[in-house]
């Protein structure tokens, strides 16, 4: 009797984010049945894809016990550069996409360089480049809104067998990231570096190169996500993607990625991004006061990390090394 409750508890805690997701999803659905329509679900996934893509990039960084606070600014700067080039030089959407991704990757490479070569801790580096990136972008645009050509919006509306383009890109990113993390030498070495950087060095892993690459990947994802997001909006202003890094970190952490490195996977980040976006849309569907929405979102993120800590405590208890056999407990 008691055994079963313990197992149920463990089961619930081990899947707390999924449980929270389902509970909230059903709740919003009951409150407003339209929320459960295919259209609305597609919308959730589509909206989640932007945060999701950067959350996947963030997962790489968090796995090495690093952090990338600059992804929001990166999304902004890379889109600004792409937008300005598209407008001034009239380059096409595909070229624009390449430019955005290239700028994002370079941005990440700059972070990587400072972190790896100058040995400044990632928090300070990316906090600084957060400010630098947005400052540069705003200086480029003279703080004006950048309007993209109409072709950008039509690019954003592309569908493949009825699936919107952002979702397809998101799926590709997830697949690629999953392959890299689980099936390549580089991916496994990321986990090793995050678990014990000293031991990784001793094992002959080029830790600097591993760390550098995760920031480059994060930058790549930011450039990509920024451009895809713009293709839905058609324009960008000064505050575009501001604070997105926190959504990405929250998404990754909600999916079970540890801020201390070595623990986490791609699907966790995807689940986290979907949860955050589902809550956001659910609140809109239920006509919750605009001012209350961020508060409720905050509370739900808190609940998720809180359950996660309960799970940790529970795991610790279960993993406790026993010295002698525990006498079978009599059911009370």
């Amino acid at each position: 009797m008691k055994r079963r409750t313990i197992n149920l508890r463990t089961l619930l805690l081990n899947n707390s984010t999924i449980v929270l997701f389902i509970v909230l999803f059903v709740y919003f659905g009951i409150q407003s049945p339209r929320f459960l329509s295919l259209e609305s679900i597609t919308n959730i996934v589509k909206q989640a894809s932007f945060t999701g893509i950067i959350a996947v990039g963030m997962t790489f960084v968090l796995l090495t016990a690093g952090i990338d606070l600059s992804v929001g600014s990166n999304m902004y700067l890379s889109s600004v550069v792409a937008g300005l080039l598209m407008r001034q030089l009239g380059i096409g959407v595909v070229e624009g996409l390449l430019v955005a991704v290239a700028v994002g990757t370079l941005y990440g490479a700059f972070n990587a360089f400072v972190i790896v070569r100058l040995k400044i801790i990632p928090f300070m580096v990316t906090l600084s480049t957060l400010v630098i990136g947005r400052g540069l972008g705003t200086a480029f645009t003279q703080s004006q809104q950048v309007d993209f050509p109409q072709s950008m919006l039509s690019f954003g509306q592309i569908q493949l067998v009825g699936i919107p383009m952002p979702i397809i890109v998101f799926a590709l990113v997830i697949a690629a990231a999953w392959v890299i993390l689980t099936r390549t030498q580089f991916g496994r070495q990321i986990y090793a570096v995050g678990n014990d950087p000293e031991a990784a060095k001793k094992a002959g892993i080029r830790t600097n190169w591993v760390i550098a690459r995760v920031y480059i990947i994060s930058g790549f994802c930011a450039g990509l996500a920024g451009f895809i997001l713009i293709s839905q909006l058609g324009r960008l202003d000064r505050s575009f993607a501001e604070g997105r890094e926190f959504d990405a970190i929250a998404a990754a952490v909600l999916g079970g990625t540890s801020l201390f490195g070595g623990v986490g996977n791609v699907f966790g980040a995807v689940l986290g991004a979907l949860l955050i976006q589902m809550v956001q849309l659910g609140l809109v569907f239920n006509n919750v006061n605009l001012y209350l929405q961020p508060m409720i979102k905050g509370v739900i993120i808190f609940l998720a990390i809180f359950f996660d800590s309960l799970r940790d405590a529970n795991m610790k208890k279960l993993k406790r090394r026993f010295i002698r056999p525990v006498e079978t407990q009599t059911p009370s």
């Binding site: 600084s128 400052g135 972008g137 705003t138 200086a139 703080s143």
Partner: peptide, 11 residues
Amino acid sequence: FIIDAVKGGII
């Protein structure tokens, strides 16, 4: 905006 950028660099 440039000031922001420089500030980040100085830090």
